[in-house]
């Protein structure tokens, strides 16, 4: 009898963490095929690549917690990258975006980009909360609008859609520099993670996010302001995604209007793999971080062991569908 119970528990555990375990196995397989991937430098590289994605996925988590999704996330990465990069080029660079722009303090363009992200988030949240447009549709619209606006900005003379380069070293330091062996960008991701964890677990706003996602009706009758909560969480989402866009520009040392295209799908996939339920109300920061890191490892690893990119796309697609179907099973099977 006791054995039975523990067997059931194990089954349950496997059921709950199925997709996680499958991916861990994939990680192991990759490591066996090419053990060199386990070298410290490579792992550090993977962690650096994960950092901007962690920040973005944490933003995305807020929206998924309420059963929605932000499709405009990838394009917002591009916009934030272009905004910050366009104002942070070295004075002697030949093809400057703003030829006569004086040297700005580092934080000014960064804050501008993040504020733009927050405003777009507030707009998304307003459309979702006030006009009851599903997040999927509202953000599909903003995805197209963001890309259009960003491309117009990017195409302004004298830039005329040239990739933005020649970024200031103090800016690129944020993305590719390190303090000792620890990359600055990883420190950023860690700080953001702690902040998000704090907001979700220790603040009224965070708890309201879980409540609205878990049972909107209950939140309403308990006097929670759903509109404000939705607007707030979309704002946080926009702000974090914009921040990840800024850091993406700093990390790669450039920006174009096509930066970040499709990143929103990676972020959604990472959240789901990390246990954020697409039906709302369930999800944690450590889960999302684990989801992103595993996903990045597989991404990197598949290239590392020589899987061609077309196959990589197929594998990633299968992982996403499998993750969501396992997630749905967890809740639906209760019937």
């Amino acid at each position: 009898m006791l054995f039975d119970l523990s067997k059931k528990k194990i089954q349950n555990f496997i059921m709950q963490k199925a997709i996680f375990l499958v991916l861990l196995m994939l990680v192991v397989v990759i490591a066996i095929i090419n053990p060199k991937i386990l070298r410290l430098v490579v792992l550090r590289d993977i962690l650096m690549q994960s950092s901007t994605k962690v920040i973005m996925a944490l933003g995305m988590m807020f929206v998924i917690l309420t059963g929605g999704v932000d499709l405009g996330g990838g394009r917002l990465v591009g916009m934030a990258a272009v905004i910050s990069a366009s104002m942070l080029q070295t004075p002697d660079y030949l093809r400057r975006f703003f030829p006569d722009l004086p040297q700005l303090p580092l934080f000014v363009p960064i804050v501008m980009a993040v504020v733009v992200g927050i405003l777009i988030g507030v707009l998304n949240g307003t459309i979702v909360a006030k006009f009851k447009v599903p997040a999927f549709i509202a953000t599909l619209g903003s995805m197209l609008i963001i890309y259009g606006v960003n491309s117009i900005y990017f195409n302004m003379p004298p830039n005329n859609s040239q990739p933005i380069g020649g970024l200031r070293p103090d800016f690129t330091f944020l993305g590719s520099g390190s303090i000792g062996f620890v990359p600055v960008i990883v420190i950023f991701a860690a700080l953001v993670s702690i902040a998000v964890w704090f907001v979700l677990n220790k603040t009224v706003f965070g708890k309201n996010v879980y409540a609205v996602g878990g049972n909107a009706e209950a939140a309403t009758v308990s006097g929670v302001n759903i509109t404000h909560t939705l607007m707030g969480l979309f704002a946080v989402c926009g702000g974090l995604i914009a921040l990840s866009g800024v850091l993406e520009a700093a990390r790669t040392g450039g920006a174009t209007n096509n930066y970040g295209n499709g990143y929103e799908l990676d972020a959604i996939a990472s959240c789901v793999v990390g246990g954020v339920s697409t039906t709302g109300g369930v999800g944690s920061v450590p889960g999302v971080i684990a989801g992103v890191v595993i996903f990045s490892f597989i991404n990197y690893g598949l290239t590392f062991v020589g899987v061609n990119p077309y196959w990589q796309s197929i594998i990633k697609g299968m992982i996403i569908v499998a993750a969501v179907s396992f997630d749905i099973r967890k809740y639906v099977q209760k019937k």
Partner: peptide, 19 residues
């Protein structure tokens, strides 16, 4: 109107958590 994945106390004080 339960919020299934939250605790008893959070369900009770939702909307007016002590701060």
């Amino acid at each position: 109107h339960p919020i299934p994945h939250r605790t008893v106390m959070e369900n009770i004080w939702l909307g007016r958590f002590p701060r």
